[in-house]
Write a protein that binds this DNA or RNA. Structure first.
Lengths: 146, 146
DNA sequence: TTCCTTTCGTTGGCGCTACCAACATTGGCA
DNA sequence: TGCCAATGTTGGTAGCGCCAACGAAAGGAA
């Protein structure tokens, strides 16, 4: 294998984005096994955790653009993983509901994702994993405000 | 701000990929100021560090697909940041050379990137930054073999 | 009430990164 | 010689993130 330029290898942003590529590939492979992708998981997870929501709400919680939520809900609804019904109390909104099948799909995706975490962090000790998660959590929290 | 589902927030792969989004946005903003993007930096950095190379070599060092190297070299050559000449010793290959202007562009991009690192790691102490880099470096090294 | 602003869902787009398949040309090797 | 590997190139595709614009509807100010 060829050497990576030191200019790159020394940059935290390089380490982060390259590692994210690996993480994304692992996750995609896992999700691909159940015919889904990341956006689907985000929406299903948000629904399972906070219950039926409007699309705008789902977007804010899952860090997704409104327009991408539309497409994702379309796909999930076509597979009967969610239901989209107009909100009678606010006629601008749709209420998105998780179905039984959707809950099952979420469980499948979650298991795949757990395996991904293992593969991703394999070389690290339990302590190091915890440290890494702490640092990343701090950083992410910071960048989601400023 | 709305709450992120715990199912997401707990996954290292989520932290990593989301943080990479922020890192990428910061870098893109920095690069955008000089009319460039990530692929350009990778190629220029590899050329500066290892000297004139074939496109395939550049791709391996910069972690890029051959086809993406072609497009990137096209763009860099159009701005006279690199020169592409056929290799007389191996007529399959091109030799890509960094120009003075290319070196200047790299310096500009590198300065922008240094600022990005600061912004990215701002909330962390010097110790924490070092720890983070160590952990990420270990992980990345692992995933670039297996 | 009327007017203005905001929110919501939707459509249709774009950029960047990461890939893949196919092809012709050329080198290297058995 | 004949076969396989590497190279550059073309022309795709997918996923994620994002933006502008629109009509419909809600909310708040005057």
């Amino acid at each position: 294998m060829e050497e990576t330029p030191a200019l790159l290898a020394a940059k935290p942003s390089w380490l982060l984005t390259q590692l994210a590529v690996h993480a994304h590939r692992l996750a995609s492979d896992g999700f691909g096994g159940v015919g889904a992708r990341g956006y689907h998981y985000r929406i299903l997870a948000a629904l399972a955790e906070f219950g039926a929501s409007s699309q705008a709400e789902l977007g804010r919680r899952s860090n997704m653009d409104r327009s991408d939520v539309v497409a994702t809900i379309n796909e999930l609804a076509e597979q009967d993983f969610v239901e989209r019904t107009p909100d009678p109390d606010d006629r601008r909104r749709n209420i998105v509901t998780l179905t039984k099948a959707g809950r099952r799909q979420l469980r499948r995706m979650d298991q795949a994702l757990d395996q991904v975490q293992d593969d991703l962090l394999r070389p690290l000790s339990a302590d190091d994993r915890q440290t890494l998660v702490r640092l990343l959590t701090d950083l992410l929290a910071h960048h989601q405000r400023g």
